[in-house]
Nucleic acid binder design. Structure first.
Length: 541
RNA sequence: GGCGCUAUCGUCUAGGGGUUAGGACGGAAGAUUCUCAAUCUUCAAACCCGGGUUCGAUUCCCGGUAGCGCUACCA
């Protein structure tokens, strides 16, 4: 029975790296008909918050990801302690009565004899941490305390941490096979006596995680590569507890353009899944994008539906090198002097604004700056692949949230005009804004003047257009009729099509770049069209 | 410092002892159109360095370098 788990610790919003880890686990389970388990690793009471847990659920639900079983580590503490005690009973763990944090790195007080190899001199304590090489033996005296003394002090109520007694003499080579990174080996001389239980009785991550993985019969542990070296400790725990070793598969890390691990603290909103949701990514596109970081179907496919991903996914397709999420460094490194936000490319409207993404010194980051261009492209691809009514339904809430009370039927008519022009759902606000308002926001009248023309030409075109369109029954405000009439008018005025159409476009849309004119007029309707042309005439005069 | 991992166009990646080193994004140029977008065509762009093994290495081995990760009573 194949069983995989995703085990987030609720210490912040859902991280894109975590989301990808979930997805890979989920894909593996769904591909093989296995069981997907969500386990909340909340043993760190200091840092866990319920708000964080809520945000993780929110993120997963937006991505439309499902799981079959759910657990919470804080409800399974008895199990963890039980397994820790079982290990203690075998002699493979010992009580360390050193007060908490007194032995923490890098304070030199903990030095003691490092686990130096024969022949290597031990470093002097004053030299600081680990200069002699090898792993650190925490609080060396603690390991040697007799069982009698240990029992006595414990019975007296003295607090202690439980540490794993890593085999020292003879030193052993711990081995495991990783589905992605291959055969792994490490000497016990390089593994420190790590803690199993804290002095308050709470299990550490290593203990809780292994106890649960064993108890829940997890068959495959698919997780970030930052756990690769921890795995040796886990192998030790599994062994000591007499549990079967699961198959490990470590995933390359998601890194920032500067190569460092993506972190909430350093890279802020660009690592939060909610940022992508709020910016108007389609969940299916975002999942697609995440899958392409560190995994390949090896068949040159880039755009994949969820079903295709499930069908194509395999551990063999996972890459070993870290993958860069290619956002612009300005996101994390405020520029000085401050730079004005770039407008969205090709879209006349204001740049995308999202909370937390204000640029230092004012302005907002554009979507091209904060998102990986491939993510943007993939999102556009998925948008274009959506049926019109589906896309329209997803656009509607975005528009309404921006304060425009648009009817579903109207949205459906606008949708085909924006479908090929937006990369993010939110782009609809800058691409189709003129459909939503009664009054066009102010624009530069000079825009009304066509190529190789002057104000007189603009005026002539606008007046003629108004005349022609006014004579058209509202029912004839259809693409073909508009096309025929306006072209005829252009010919009559001896204007090129573009020279005729641009003034009208600017009059109606308030900018030069917009969806095709006749479709636009058709959707906008006779009344608004004429009103806007009249206003434009006023501006030119 | 110690240990582990990694290294193909700017980015995501395919490939693998002999290839014009493939694809995608992004970039450039052109076609098309009433603008924009979409679409189509074309172009530029990569095997970290040094040794070995071999008739032949980008590919296998070793070393170096660089990057990353771990090295907590965090996860």
């Amino acid at each position: 029975m194949l069983r995989v788990r995703f085990a987030p610790s609720p210490t912040g919003f859902l991280h894109v790296g975590s989301a990808r880890t979930f997805i890979f686990n989920w894909l593996y389970a769904r591909h093989n008909g296995g069981t997907m388990i969500l386990r909340v690793d909340d043993t760190d009471v200091e840092r866990n918050t319920e708000a964080s847990l809520t945000s993780i659920f929110e993120g997963l639900s937006w991505l439309n990801l499902s799981w079959d079983e759910q657990y919470r580590q804080s409800e399974r503490l008895a199990l963890h302690r039980q397994m820790a005690e079982a290990i203690f009973a075998t002699g493979l763990a010992y009580r360390d009565f050193t007060p908490a944090h007194e032995g923490d790195s890098p304070k030199p007080i903990a030095v003691g004899p490092p686990l130096s190899r024969p022949g290597e001199p031990a470093p002097k304590p004053t030299e600081g941490a680990r200069q002699g090489g090898g792993a650190w033996l925490f609080n060396p005296g603690a390991r040697e305390i007799s069982r009698e003394e240990s029992d006595r002090r414990a019975a007296a109520g003295e607090p202690f941490a439980l540490r794993f007694r890593v085999p020292r003499e003879p030193e052993r080579i711990i081995r495991f096979n990783d589905a992605v990174y291959g055969e792994q080996a490490k000497s016990t001389a390089d593994i420190e006596d790590f803690a199993l239980l804290r002095s308050d009785g709470m299990p550490t991550y290593h203990m809780a995680s292994c106890a649960d993985d064993a108890d829940l019969r997890i068959s495959h542990i698919i997780r970030g590569q930052d756990h690769l070296t921890n795995t040796f400790k886990h192998v030790l725990i599994f062994e000591a507890a007499g549990a079967a070793l699961p198959q490990f598969a470590h995933l390359p890390l998601l890194v920032a353009p500067d190569g460092t691990k993506l972190s909430k603290r350093k890279h802020g909103p660009v690592v939060s899944v909610t940022t992508y949701r709020d910016a108007g990514f389609l969940p299916e596109a975002f999942v697609n994008f995440l899958c392409l970081l560190g995994w390949s179907p090896k068949n040159d496919q880039t755009m994949m539906s969820r079903q295709e991903l499930i069908g194509l996914f395999s551990l063999e397709g996972i890459n070993r090198a870290n993958a860069v999420v290619n956002f612009k460094d300005v996101v994390v490194q405020p520029l000085s002097p401050p730079v004005v936000a770039l407008p969205l490319k090709a879209l006349g409207g204001p740049p995308l604004s999202l909370p937390g993404l204000e640029r230092q010194g004012g302005g907002f980051l554009s979507s091209e700056e904060m998102f990986d261009p491939k993510a943007l492209w993939l999102n556009a691809e998925h948008i274009r692949a959506l049926p019109l009514d589906d896309l329209s339904q997803r656009l509607l809430p975005v528009v309404r949230e921006a304060g425009f009370n648009v009817l579903p039927e109207y949205m459906l008519r606008i949708t085909p005009l924006v479908r090929e022009r937006i990369k993010l759902l939110k782009d609809v606000l800058t691409v189709a804004d003129f459909f939503f308002v009664d009054q066009l926001p102010p624009y530069n009248p000079a825009e009304l003047i066509p190529q190789k023309g002057d104000a007189a030409m603009a005026l002539k075109a606008l007046k003629k257009a108004h005349e022609v369109l006014a004579n058209l029954p509202a029912a004839d405000f259809k693409h073909d009729t508009l096309d025929a009439n306006l072209r005829a008018a252009a010919q009559e005025l001896k204007l090129k099509a573009g020279q005729m159409f641009q003034p009208i476009r600017v009059a109606v849309c308030g900018r030069k770049n917009a969806p095709p004119l006749f479709e636009t007029l058709e959707v906008l309707g006779k009344e608004k069209t004429l009103a806007r042309i009249e206003q434009a005439i006023g501006k030119v005069q």
